[in-house]
Design a protein around this nucleic acid. Structure first.
Lengths: 220, 220
DNA sequence: CGTTCAATAAGGCAATTGCCCTATTTTTAA
DNA sequence: TTAAAAATAGGGCAATTGCCTTATTGAACG
């Protein structure tokens, strides 16, 4: 097996050395560099090209999410695992959006981290189960939002005639009665009459309300 | 440690027995029941209340996703791990929506499955890294869709002042100048003046157009 | 074969709106 | 601290709108 090169990024010197020592016992791994914040990591990447970067999230100067975004922007293929104590939903989501390929909690055992790195090299997305659970929540929530948005009524349910729907569309596009009349080859008077009927059926009292009703129900 | 009770659901008798035998060597686990499809699983659940259900996806009569939906509907706390050879994106998403708590590939080692079950009992969402990677893709894609939908301009980009934005909101809610004036404790004249300024900045010429501009850019 | 309803057309009138103008005070920014 | 911008207020007027009224024609439906 080829040796996998690693970049470590953490602002806490103690933790940084801890991780470094824990991982260096594995002969499958080689620590390319250690960086103390996102900015530093970007600098180190000018020199080193590690296979995988283990990145802390909360750091001064440039945090792990910002750094991930930058690195991914420059090299979309760079593999990055977020390695952090944080399990805040928004941070997880931010990290994913930024392009993190995995998300591990810092209290994972070194052997688990090694395994995760190997899984990552195989195209997987290693993830602590707690993180995965939060990700599922995020996915389901996003889906739920989409579902609730779609509860529409049809124009027919208000007994709008074809002509009235037609007129309502013109109204919604911002035309005046005169303009609508010109387009439909009828008199402005008739257009206004139709509008009155529309108002009665929709229980509204102005063009604005009619349009809002139409938009709410996605008629337009 | 307490013994964790398991329900197995798979239409392939050979695989069903395989999994059963593989898992029964662990004294931490106890196989409560084996079912050969979703319908059968629902029946078995009338009698047994396993801590965790390992569920295949593709099955005749009632597939794993449909069964998961049903089971979750009856008992939202039931833990279900999808255990399948499938790694099709849509199926993964469907399973998640249906309420699966974890998603493992069938070629995982029995020890890994045991570990996953324990992680699930701890509130995590065990997931094969390949599945997790696809989930990340789904999440990013959904977010990307939202982003592309959201190519909006801010009210500030039109140099709308705070007051003007406030007025625009009232206009959008269908209020007349008099009504807006009453709510903001200013004169109707001032309200109309603000509106004129808004029109000039937005390059529109009516309440309707202003509202459409506001809606297009999701200010309201 | 009527009856109902959609579509058409029109008169009238009060209220609202859009747009032109000026002007003072307050807030913000340079 | 000075200049610019925002917020306030108002006059005037033509166009538009909302709502009341009546009326004719053709299509649909039992």
């Amino acid at each position: 097996m080829n040796i996998i090169s690693i970049g470590l990024v953490d602002d806490n010197p103690v933790l940084l050395n801890n991780i470094s020592e824990n991982l260096s016992v594995f002969e499958e791994l080689h620590i390319d560099f250690k960086a103390i914040n996102g900015r530093d990591a970007l600098d180190k990447l000018m020199v080193y090209q590690p296979d995988v970067i283990l990145m802390d999230i909360e750091m001064p100067v440039m945090d792990g999410i910002e750094a991930t975004r930058e690195i991914k922007h420059k090299n979309p293929l760079q593999k990055i695992i977020m390695l952090t104590v944080l399990d805040r939903d928004d941070k997880i989501f931010e990290a994913i959006k930024a392009g993190a390929s995995g998300y591990l909690l810092k209290d994972e055992k070194p052997s688990k981290i090694l395994k995760s790195i190997e899984e990552l090299m195989d195209g997987g997305a290693p993830m602590s189960p707690i993180i995965a659970a939060k990700m599922l929540d995020i996915l389901r929530k996003q889906d739920a939002i989409k579902e609730t948005e779609a509860q529409y009524l049809s124009p027919q349910s208000f007994n709008l005639s074809k002509r009235e729907i037609e007129i309502l569309e013109k109204i919604a596009s911002g035309l005046s009665y005169t303009q609508i009349a010109d387009r439909l080859f009828i008199s402005a008077r008739t257009t206004r009459k139709h509008t009155e009927n529309i108002y009665r059926k929709l229980h509204v009292h102005s063009k604005l309300e009619a349009i809002q009703m139409a938009q709410k129900n996605k008629w337009i």
